[in-house]
Design a binder for these strands. Structure first.
Lengths: 258, 258
DNA sequence: AGGCGGGTTTGACGTGTGTCAAAGCCTTCC
DNA sequence: GGAAGGCTTTGACACACGTCAAACCCGCCT
């Protein structure tokens, strides 16, 4: 939990793909404005190039190509990652090699918080499109949090938030409810990060969606067809339009309300 | 997030049931030894009656009778609760009043961490048997955490841990797998808290179990009968014996492995 | 002790969704 | 441009589990 992270099983990626040392993030940029960790960067004075009070807290990572792995199940936990561009899925591999898709992450969202307790990453993180990241040394961030109560509070809330969200998929919901909630949630998350919330590309395959929602890929396909037939969405390949968000939200209300 | 909690919607319970002011917990006691927050108490010198460096951090609560509510969905978040005795279920109530059982908590376990982000409790906590609690002011604990990195780290890990666990119920597992994993998990948690791990009372009803596992109560009953017929368990009413933990663990391996 | 009531068990039946299969579509790569 | 392969769609069928119903059991209260 301390020291630079250039050693260990992440080094193949970290060593090769680090951003040039002179790079300084800009909290006011499009990239950073909507990031869940922007307040952490702001706190240490990033954005003012002349200050670097906590060199080693954050560094850029990438670009990764679609399909490449950012970290692997079992890797020692040393940092969390904010998605800067692209999208990511996290997955666990069964003892029999069967995949289990835990979640999808959009720009501005944070990966790796579930690794704090076991001190190892409990899942792989795989880029679904070309992607870039900000890597936050967790030991540096913890140290900062003891000096800055606002940072500590922010981290507590960030982890607690995922706790509440990860429970949503545990109920006994129908395939339609799950799909509706999934689509609405995705739209809201895109919107929250400054993208159009009713018109976007699904960066993951039907079977990834199915796996994530505990459905069969065929069921996902059927439900999407049904939604289209009812005029709720438009979908062609992976290009999605949400036509009637309100009705979708009603369908997924059981999951979305919390 | 600050100030005493004697006001607000918790006051009916808090005001009436607080332990006498002179009470001092004893970290070496049976009650405390296995508690997930014992290190926090130890950190501030509880157990040494002459010290009280952080009066207001923790206080005792209860006893509550079976069926009584410790906190309610929507209550403002001011504290987390460690179970001192008895067992508890947390549940959400649907917009239509349908119950959703989120979890069961044994002595030594901590309730309320999912309330940090929304700043309100997302669920009710209901005593399943007569129960007592230690109430930890979260603002006091946060303040302590900024001074004691070990406490901060402990809290991060505690929340992150629940994050990993709450994902287990989200997969598409068969009823048998769910039940097996549930029983083994319960046994291990009892064992971790110093109770016999293969012989205990289920403090919750079949329908609570069913709801929690996203099954029908009838299915739970049927699975338990099947497990008994196969010699895996003995069960009579709510008294449970785990006869073949190994085979149960195999059945629930998909969930338990992580 | 007796009787009430909720929880539990067991059976019969229906259905949502998984599985298997085949055809179609899109993308990629040569 | 054409072929190959993976992803997607659609259909037919099976099965695990939910639902409905009835009987049972047990604790609890009078």
């Amino acid at each position: 939990m301390h020291g630079p992270a250039t050693e260990g099983r992440l080094s193949h990626a970290v060593g090769r793909q680090r951003a040039p040392a002179g790079f300084v993030p800009d909290v006011a940029s499009d990239f950073c404005r909507s990031c869940a960790l922007s307040s952490v960067c702001a706190m240490v004075g990033y954005g003012k190039p002349e200050l670097s009070p906590l060199h080693g807290l954050m560094e850029h990572l990438g670009p990764y190509r679609a399909g490449e792995t950012i970290f692997r199940q079992g890797d020692p936990f040393e940092a969390v990652f904010a998605v800067r561009a692209g999208t990511v899925k996290t997955r666990q591999l069964d003892h029999q090699g069967r995949e289990r898709v835990l979640g999808f992450f959009l720009p501005g969202e944070v990966i790796g918080l579930d690794a704090i307790y076991p001190d190892r990453f409990p899942c792989d993180a795989v880029a679904l499109e070309d992607a870039q990241f900000c890597r936050f040394s967790f030991s540096a961030m913890s140290a900062l949090a003891t000096r800055q109560p606002a940072v500590q509070r922010h981290l507590f809330r960030l982890i607690s938030r995922q706790l509440g969200m990860s429970r949503l998929l545990a109920g006994d919901y129908s395939a339609g409810e799950r799909m509706a909630a999934f689509l609405v949630d995705l739209g809201e998350r895109y919107a929250a990060r400054g993208f159009p919330g009713t018109h976007f590309q699904l960066s993951m395959s039907r079977s990834d969606i199915a796996n994530h929602l505990s459905l069969a890929a065929e069921t996902v396909s059927r439900i999407l067809s049904r939604f289209r037939a009812k005029g709720l969405i438009g979908i062609r390949g992976r290009v999605l339009h949400l036509h009637d968000t309100q009705r979708l939200r009603d369908l997924g209300r059981k999951l979305l309300a919390a």
